[in-house]
Amino acid sequence: MAHRWPNDETYLGWIELAVRNEGVIGDLLAGAATGELVRQVRAVHTYPVREVYTIISAGRPTEVGLRGYPAVQTIIAAGADDQRGEAVLGILFGDAVRGLDRLRRST
């Protein structure tokens, strides 16, 4: 069932899509109704990704998923290992640290 958004309101969203080669995007867009895409999408940005990081693993968010790669990279470079512990992550991010599967089992 499609979700209908009120026509007089603006919905802001962000999708990040990683692909192995540039041709994939062209193939995806070829199947889209271009007119509808133009009415719904205001900007598309592309940039090369040289590395890929896992955001969720085993049903739980990774440090990169919670904090973002630049923050994790800074914490590691600074040797602030105490900032990577489960207790600190729990204080900062609450139940999100446990992941959806563990949240569902505990309720």
Rank of each mutant, 00 (worst) to 15 (best):
G99P: 02
G85R: 05
Y53L: 00
H3T: 15
D82P: 02
D101W: 08
F93Y: 15
G90P: 08
G99I: 09
D8E: 03
R50N: 01
L37G: 07
Y69K: 07
Y11H: 14
Q40M: 09
A80C: 07
V41T: 07
L100N: 03
D95G: 12
T62V: 08
G13M: 11
A77Q: 12
E16R: 14
R60T: 00
R50H: 06
T62C: 13
I91D: 12
G99K: 01
R84N: 02
V64K: 01
V97E: 15
V44R: 04
I55K: 00
R84D: 04
V44T: 10
A30R: 15
H45L: 12
D81F: 08
L28Y: 13
T62N: 01
Q73R: 09
W5T: 12
E51P: 00
V19N: 11
A77H: 09
S57M: 13
A18T: 11
E9G: 05
A18W: 09
L29T: 11
I76Q: 13
G68T: 12
D27C: 05
T54A: 09
G99Y: 06
E16H: 03
I75A: 10
Q40L: 10
M1N: 03
I76N: 13
S106V: 13
G90T: 03
A30I: 15
A96M: 14
S57Y: 10
A2G: 14
A43F: 11
V52T: 03
V49W: 07
G94V: 00
E9S: 07
A32Q: 12
V41F: 01
G59S: 11
V44I: 09
I55P: 02
V19M: 13
G13H: 15
H45S: 01
G35A: 06
A80E: 15
R50P: 00
G79T: 01
D27A: 06
V38Q: 11
A96S: 08
G99F: 06
L89W: 04
L66K: 08
A77R: 06
F93M: 10
T54G: 07
G99D: 03
V41G: 02
T107V: 08
L103Q: 14
T54I: 05
E16V: 13
G26E: 09
V72L: 08
V49S: 01
N21L: 01
T10H: 08
S57Q: 08
L100I: 14
Q83K: 11
G59H: 05
Q83G: 05
Y53Q: 04
R42H: 11
E63C: 07
V64L: 01
L66V: 08
R98N: 07
R105A: 15
G26Q: 07
R60L: 13
T107P: 10
G26L: 05
V52F: 03
I55F: 02
L28W: 14
E86P: 01
D101F: 14
G99L: 04
V88W: 15
A71W: 02
R4V: 02
T46M: 06
L92N: 06
V24D: 07
